[in-house]
Amino acid sequence: MTAEPTTAEPTTTEATTAPGRSRADLLLFLTISFVGAWITMVPLWADGLRRTSAGQGTPRLAALCMVLMMLVPALTAFGLTARGRGPRRAARILGLTRATPWRRELRSVAVALTIPPALTATGLALATAVGWYAPAHLPGPGAVGALVLSALLSVPLYFGEELGWQGYLLPRLLRHGRIRGLLLGGAIWGAWHVPMTALGGSYPGHPAVLGVPVAVVTAMLLGTVIATIRLSTGSVWAAVAAHLSLNEFTLPLTRAVSGRVVDPLLAGPLSVSTWPVTGLAVLGIWLAHRRGAGRRRSLPVPQPRPTAGR
């Protein structure tokens, strides 16, 4: 997010001029995205793979399935939007094309990259205070360089999610109210991860009955922050940067800095110890929106000038 105020919000023709069609398309998008997520995880369920420890690595089959899963929302959104419009217009509607000057866009991306680490660092401080985390050392230049390279190679995958969630879904949820739409979008995002979460993807070693609700609440909070970044810039680029920073930097750095195996349920960007921090961020977003709405309601209504009588 940038310091400069903006009113840019993603909109689509369907979401604003054809409510019936928009609802049908939204249902189709969610159906394909959720069914597609489960289908891409079938090989892991069939293989009986489950993460039982935070120290367990990611097998190649699991990595491939996750890549395919991440591409489902974008492909679905692009296909639905491009019908009768063509790829160029679809890219503009979904926020893929640049919505602001390049200098401002790059500044927004740079700031977005810092938001997940800032939230996580504060959450780790809380986790350290209660004994859930033990920082031991800073990562070396080689480790940081490897993370940067991995992040650059993974950029298309995060577009795979955010074109769907922030480009297609978010505009349609905003009709239910801004804050309600943001939280609902986050809940949908968390529920979409269930096929992976139930296998111990986010919280290894914990039962699905615990991991799934925690994942949904976490997604509601973090998803609201990412969606707000999307709304403040008018494009998905900064939202992609925030999501990439969350997965490619904060998660591995949390493990790299610790002197012992980290339980992601208790410490890290997806942990309950980060909930108070992201919760405060969401509260700030709500207060800022409420204050802005109040200012808009209080603006004086221009009165017509009296005309001279004849």
Rank of each mutant, 00 (worst) to 15 (best):
A24E: 09
A24W: 03
D25A: 15
D25Y: 14
D25I: 13
L26K: 06
L26Y: 01
L26T: 04
L27S: 08
L27I: 08
L27E: 05
L28C: 00
L28G: 02
L28N: 01
F29E: 11
F29L: 15
L30E: 07
L30S: 06
T31V: 05
T31C: 14
I32S: 06
S33M: 15
S33D: 05
S33V: 15
S33H: 10
F34T: 04
F34A: 01
F34K: 03
V35T: 02
V35P: 05
G36T: 04
G36N: 04
G36M: 01
G36W: 00
A37V: 07
W38V: 07
I39Y: 09
T40Y: 05
T40I: 02
P43C: 00
P43V: 02
P43D: 00
W45L: 08
A46F: 02
A46D: 02
D47Y: 01
G48C: 04
G48I: 03
G48L: 06
G48W: 05
G48R: 06
L49H: 01
R50C: 02
R50F: 01
R50D: 01
R50W: 05
R50N: 02
R51M: 13
R51Y: 00
R51K: 03
R51L: 12
T52G: 12
S53F: 00
S53K: 09
A54Y: 04
A54Q: 01
G55V: 09
G55P: 04
Q56Y: 04
Q56E: 12
G57Y: 10
G57W: 12
G57H: 11
T58K: 08
T58R: 11
T58Q: 12
T58C: 03
P59F: 13
P59N: 11
P59Q: 13
L61T: 14
L61W: 03
A62I: 02
A62T: 08
A62F: 13
A63F: 14
A63I: 07
A63Q: 14
C65D: 12
C65T: 14
C65G: 12
M66H: 15
V67M: 15
L68C: 10
L68H: 09
M69H: 10
M69K: 11
M69F: 14
M69Q: 15
M69L: 15
M69T: 11
M70D: 08
M70H: 05
L71E: 08
L71C: 10
L71T: 12
L71Q: 08
